[in-house]
Design a binder for these strands. Structure first.
Length: 859
RNA sequence: GCGGGCGUGGCGAAAUCGGUAGACGCACGAGACUUAAAAUCUCGAGUCCCUCAAGGACGUGCCGGUUCGAGCCCGGCCGCCCGCACCA
């Protein structure tokens, strides 16, 4: 018996697919289309298991949809701008472009080795001027339409590296690379007006019914719509007013203090004359700016000595603090604190001995005795201690308070969003240049569209800290397009999220002279099935939703939502290993010594740690190429979809890979064995008419039920269940005796079973499927063969197993005809020996009959 | 802190309509084949009681509730994970 040789076979069929151009998206726009897209990779060097999982899932869907008759677009490209290329330039002295394109070449080869059904003719790399010139053009068009503006904003500044740092690059207040104390700086930057679409981006989430609820909730929270009021507090001894935002105007009579953000302009003004305050602000800024940090941190404040005047009560003065938990970027950067009904305010008040006056009383409490000590009361109740608001409920009091504020000119009802505009300026080299020119006379002048693209200069150095575009001797010096005098190019580049905000549109017409070809995007968009990591739940997906709307506003596309269906996959995890000295070890650096694991290098003991997301830093990585070379792409693909539900984290194990490997061999032996024992099977592709004997009918039922189940599972992304059903089918086929089903009809039924088996495994194991298809004597490629049809009559069994319970406990199972009359089912259940014994002579009080499922006898 | 999710055998899991808990796979055990091993094939298996069988009790993180019936619904706990604005 021959053995399946994946090394030759996988290459052979990959070549066959390429030769016939099987996976190019079709041009016939009368066919129903299906656009399946996996999040394109950053070319970091080599593919990792997360890619394998992502692209296998996409490929299963793409191959399945093709077999179902769809015109499938399944493209691939490279998210090729980004910081790692610059880090490589700094540490290895290699140019970012060279590093990036070499990585792309390596990873392209690796992806091809996986046998993915991609349309490689549409490949794009976002760092190519042929790609980024279009976003420069769109930027200018957005600018004309008022969707882009410039303003100053705070950044984390590393004074040694002379660069802006992401929050995650700030560790304990220091730059991750330089170790220098990070400063807050204000920088003029470009912003996209995503907030123009706040409400629309929020409302439209309801229409995304094929998105995970989790992602929609995350976006909803991110946008963070809240209704409330702006309140203007007069400041004693000053002419300006303090503008505060609150969602709880109903609790104004419970106010104990006002607080402003350390970054509030008033705080800066006061700090200029108060060194202690300046030091307090500096301390706050060292702590980091993320909401999580702020809200978990101890509440601290600095009493400015200023007094804010209560808007409703003449002469009521509230102390004004600079408070570390007040965010400058949300609302107005200033709050009033009502300790009784906000936990943060209560913590703050308790620390600074401020009064805690309840103004909302729970309905089951007595207002006279109701006290707040450690836990704020934030639910609805009756308003008390609040003058004209007394007796109202919370919503009523909010409305009444806003009305009074507006009458007094002391405030107004308002809606605020947590969503902030999208800052797109980056002080980096390896990104798309922002196409504007700064002229001393004319101000900001857009680069004329005829001068696009503004290409990155290639001759740059990374030996100095800061942005290489700043250091370049000539690049930034240009003449002003408006007045002709010497001027200066913008040296900032775009956030790389811009590239990924429209690449799915570019794939529809990747060589078009325009950003997108309208007739192509009108056909292909939206993406029917988008697949990627949950880590992109908010930023990438929200930016893309915004960018698509901006493109619609300037006429490039006609739809609002770019991704009709979204699936977020779980991570690939692996056990972690440490040697005796506490160093992380690669899985391949271990060997088995008896029942223990030891280090290959020195034979020392190895500690096995918990399974965690594969990461280079913990060395718990397995190289996909190693797996593909050792076991083949089909084995890797099969294993990665077989064990865990795709949305959940999965654990990569050697044993699991081995199991998948054995299955490929088993399928091969099964088909090969049948073909050897029954040469008449070759080339059979239809069933003769007439009655089918019972054993053949049973096999056909199994086959057709499997097709129905697997089809349903793939449609619903339950790949692990589809795999289990295919195992069951394989088990059933293995049980067929050699001597059975040997007449013409029997052979035809056998041939049908084998064809179905091969077609069902083909989305996940395409190479093996092609090889077996040929072995079956079938013509053409599986890649071009339709999905098997189901005979509905074979999917429903004639009899069903019904559980019989007595008082809810299982006492017997009965084999009953499907849809048997309820009374008859009850009669048979009561006649069963086990049931009678359980009844113990007692008469049933009631019998619940659920047809085809369960009968419960209650005594 | 706020928001969301998860918790089922030794392990990954299935049961997604409130109706036989543990399909399928991994690991394990016994046997067959073999000089032997690997590979392969057959059989077994939630835990406990019972010599075996028949049968029974218990069992889906914990405590309670609703129901003829709860892994699934409700309330309260416990534990773990994820997100919270310049990594991509």
């Amino acid at each position: 018996m021959s053995r399946y040789n994946f090394q030759e076979t996988e290459k052979k069929w990959q070549a066959a697919w390429t030769a016939k151009d099987c996976f190019a998206a079709g041009t016939d726009k009368s066919k129903p289309k299906y656009y399946v897209l996996e999040m394109f990779p950053y070319p970091s060097g080599r593919i990792h298991m997360g890619h394998v999982r992502n692209y296998t899932m996409g490929d299963v869907v793409a191959r399945y949809k093709r077999a179902r008759g769809f015109n499938v677009l399944h493209p691939m490209g490279w998210d090729a701008f980004g910081l790692p290329a610059e880090n490589a330039a700094i540490s290895q002295g290699v140019h970012p472009a060279k590093w990036t394109f070499e990585n792309i070449a390596t990873m392209r080869d690796q992806l091809k080795g996986m046998g993915l059904s991609l349309d490689w003719s549409r490949e794009i790399a976002t760092c190519h001027p042929e790609y980024y010139r279009h976003e420069q053009r769109m930027f200018l068009e957005f600018l004309e339409r008022g969707l882009v503006y410039r303003k100053e904003s705070w950044v984390n500044w590393d004074p040694v590296d002379q660069t802006v740092l992401a929050n995650e690059q700030v560790i304990d207040g220091r730059g991750w690379r330089s170790g220098a104390l990070v400063e807050k700086r204000k920088l003029a930057q470009w912003f996209f007006k995503i907030t123009d679409y706040s409400d629309e981006l929020l409302t439209a989430l309801d229409s995304l019914d094929r998105w995970p609820a989790k992602v929609r909730i995350m976006q909803e929270n991110w946008i963070g719509k809240s209704q409330g009021a702006r309140v203007f507090f007069s400041l004693a001894g000053r002419s300006d007013k303090l503008e505060v935002f609150t969602t709880r105007p109903d609790t104004l009579f419970g106010a104990a203090f006002c607080g402003i953000s350390p970054n509030h302009p008033l705080a800066a003004e006061l700090a200029a004359k108060d060194p202690a305050l300046a030091e307090f602000i500096a301390e706050c800024n060292r702590m980091g700016t993320s909401e999580a940090t702020l809200e978990a941190a101890e509440k601290k404040g600095y009493d400015t000595g200023l007094k804010a005047m209560h808007p409703f009560v003449d002469g009521w003065e509230l102390p004004l603090y600079v408070a570390n938990f007040v965010l400058m970027d949300y609302g107005t950067g200033a709050i009033f604190g009502c300790p009784a009904h906000d936990q943060r305010d209560l913590d703050f008040a308790n620390k600074y001995k401020l009064p805690v006056k309840p103004v909302v009383c729970p309905r089951d409490q007595d207002a006279a005795t109701f006290k707040i000590t450690d836990t704020a009361f934030t639910d609805d109740g009756v308003i008390v201690n609040s003058d004209f608001l007394n007796g109202l409920d919370v919503p009523g009091a909010k409305a009444a308070a806003v009305k009074r504020l507006e009458e007094l000119g002391a405030g107004q009802g308002t809606t605020v969003y947590r969503l902030r505009d999208w800052g797109v300026s980056r002080q980096r080299y390896w990104g798309c240049p922002i196409p504007v020119i700064h002229c001393a006379a004319c101000g900001i002048v857009p680069v004329p569209k005829s001068d696009l693209p503004v290409k990155l200069p290639e001759d740059v150095t990374f030996d100095k800290p800061g942005n290489p575009l700043e250091h370049h001797p000539t690049w930034k010096h240009v003449d002003c397009p408006a007045c002709g005098k010497p001027a200066r190019r913008e040296t900032d580049t775009f956030d790389t999220f811009i590239e990924s905000s429209w690449y799915f549109g570019r794939f529809c017409s990747p060589r078009s002279d325009a950003p997108v070809d309208r007739s192509e995007v009108d056909y292909w968009l939206p993406v029917d099935q988008y697949i990627g990591g949950i880590e992109h739940a908010v930023l990438h997906l929200l930016y893309s939703r915004f960018f698509n709307r901006a493109m619609k506003a300037v006429g490039y596309v006609g739809i609002d939502e770019p991704f009709a269906g979204l699936f977020t996959q779980g991570m690939v995890c692996h056990e972690t290993y440490k040697d005796a000295a506490g160093n992380w070890l690669l899985p391949q650096d271990l060997k088995k010594d008896g029942s223990k694991l030891v280090s290959v290098k020195d034979g020392g003991a190895v500690t096995v740690g918990r399974s965690e997301k594969m990461s280079k830093s913990k060395k718990n990585v397995v190289d996909p190429s190693y797996i593909i070379e050792t076991y083949g792409a089909d084995t890797a693909r099969w294993f990665i979809i077989s064990d865990s539900p795709p949305e959940r984290d999965m654990e990569w194990t050697e044993a699991g890979v081995e199991g998948a490997w054995r299955f490929t061999q088993r399928i091969w032996r099964l088909v090969d064995g049948w073909m050897t024992a029954h040469p008449g099977l070759a080339g059979l592709s239809s069933l003769p008419g007439g009655n089918v004997p019972a054993d053949a009918l049973a096999l056909r039922r199994t086959v057709h039920k499997t097709v129905a189940g697997v089809t349903d599972d793939i449609e619903k992304f339950r790949f692990n269940r589809a795999v289990a059903r295919i195992y069951e089918l394989a088990n059933a086929l293995s049980d067929v005796k050699d001597a059975a089903l040997t007449d013409a009809r029997g052979l035809a039924v056998r041939a049908e079973a084998l064809r179905v088996l091969v077609l069902l495994i083909s989305p996940a194991m395409p190479h093996l499927a092609e090889e077996l298809w040929a072995r079956l004597g079938q013509s053409g490629l599986v890649a071009e063969t339709a999905w098997p049809e189901i005979d509905p009559a074979l999917v429903k069994d004639e009899s069903v197993t019904v559980a019989v319970q007595v008082n809810g406990k299982l006492r017997a199972t009965l084999e009953l005809p499907r849809d048997l009359d309820k009374a008859e089912a009850e009669r048979r259940a009561l006649g069963d020996a086990n049931v009678r014994r359980a009844l113990d002579g007692k008469a049933p009080k009631k019998v619940v009959v659920v047809p085809n499922r369960v009968i419960n006898v209650v005594i």
